[in-house]
Every structure is written in C-alpha cells, then in structure tokens.
Design a protein around this nucleic acid. Structure first.
Lengths: 114, 114
DNA sequence: ATGAAAGCTAACCATTCGGTTAACTTATGA
DNA sequence: TCATAAGTTAACCGAATGGTTAGCTTTCAT
C-alpha cells in the first residue's frame, strides 16, 4: 500500500528484519519450500526454538511472515500480500536510487562549473 | 560488485544502515542536495554532532557514504560507486522477490492438489 | 595572536538484540 | 493413559544501539 512507502516506522521494521542473515535465510527458505513449522526453521541455523521464535516475531512485525497454529505445530509462511508489497517496495526503491544517481551526476557537474 | 550480492555481512550492513529513519533521511538529503558538512547533517534531525557522526559512520561502513576533510569541515556525500551498487542491489532484489512471488503461487497450487 | 567554530574522542547511559536455559502447557501417538 | 514432542514464556546474559556531555585538537577569521 501507499502507507508502506511513507510510514517510516514500517520501513524501519522491514529493513531491520532483513538486516540479519538468519532472518533472510529463514525468509528465503519459506519462499523456496513453502510453509514450515518452527523447529524446522530453527534447525538449519543451529539455534534454539526460542531463538527462532524471536526471529520469526521480528519478521511478523515487519509484515513479512505470518503463522497459523495447526495441532501442536505453528506453521510459518511468507505472507503473499506482504511479499507483493515487498516486491513493489524494492521496485520503487530501485527506481528511486537510479533516479537519484542521475541527479547526483548533475549536481556534481554543476559544482564543477562553479 | 558480485560480492555485494553474496557477502552476507555486507548485505547485513546495508540493510541495517537503512533501517533507521535518521540515516535514511541523511542519505536522501545528501542525494538531493549533494555534499554537506557534518553539522548540517546533524541540525535538521535535532541531534548532536557526535550523534550525527555515529550515523555517518554506519553509512560509511555500509559503503553508502564517503567523506573528505576540507579545512575544518568534513564533507560527506553519497558515494557514486556505492550508489550505483545500491541501485543494482535493489534491482536484483526486486527481481528476486517478484520471481519468488510467482514461485510461491506454484507452491501453494501444488499443496492444494495434494 | 587568539577566540570561536568544526570536528574528534572518550565516557557514560538506558534500551534493544540475539542468544541461551529452565519450566510450563498443549497435543500426539503407542 | 501417559511419555514425549512442539511450542511458549520468563529470566538471564553479553554485546551493540542511539543518544548524550565534557574535553581535546585543528582551523579560521579578526
């Protein structure tokens, strides 16, 4: 949504969530292999279950992951809606940085003239 | 560089640097208005000079900003090379997330068949 | 020559991070 | 039914964050 681009706290959370290799790894795993229970998210990263839960909590607060309880398992997956949002977000910023790059060239050229 | 995409620690640093609204604000300011001395980066955010220096330090370690000393001023700017890298990085990830989104659709469809 | 401006460094502080272990609840399956 | 597996919660720990103030050096301008 539009608020995703403009709400700084949300952007903070999204960037922060992805600033950790374990969390990026979990996200990529869920993307690759679909829904996974907690313990399977913990195992490949060699961390305890509570450790994994904290990471998933951060990804949830960033709106990247959502979970549903099934029996004694808690199945986590990348939220399809949030993923679409993330894709849009990256596209937006790719454009932003490219445009800024062009502009930076001009700013430097102007400086040189002075 | 290729290493930018694959070195997890570098990706960590880049995401982390951008996970703070003040640092994003400083980066955007430097993009908009070009080179600025430290104190002018501190003022609009209502923080002390040492506070601004820490933020700029984080942006430097992420390869986003570089500084040069001129007289008693320390002029900061977005590194043109790093900016190009950042643009590439965002483009790469926009593609990654989009592709992952397609794949997620397929994974869910397969699950439904079973 | 000297006082003020810009920056740097160090020290401090409260809070958050990333991880753990221990103890508890709930669901499963033999 | 009852041991065990999955998850949760709470408490703890060391390190990093994001900010500050105080004091130092360097540079500029009068």
């Amino acid at each position: 949504m539009v608020s995703f681009h403009s709400d700084p706290a949300h952007v903070d959370r999204a960037f922060f969530a992805l600033s950790n290799a374990t969390r990026r790894g979990m996200t990529e795993m869920l993307l690759r292999e679909g829904e996974k229970p907690m313990r399977e998210l913990a195992r490949p990263f060699g961390i305890s279950l509570p450790g994994a839960m904290k990471h998933i909590g951060v990804l949830q607060e960033a709106g990247i992951v959502s979970c549903r309880r099934q029996g004694r398992e808690n199945l986590c997956s990348v939220d399809p809606g949030a993923l679409r949002t993330a894709a849009n977000w990256f596209e937006f910023h790719a454009r932003f940085w490219s445009v800024s790059f062009e502009r930076l060239g001009k700013v430097l050229a102007e400086k040189k003239e002075k």
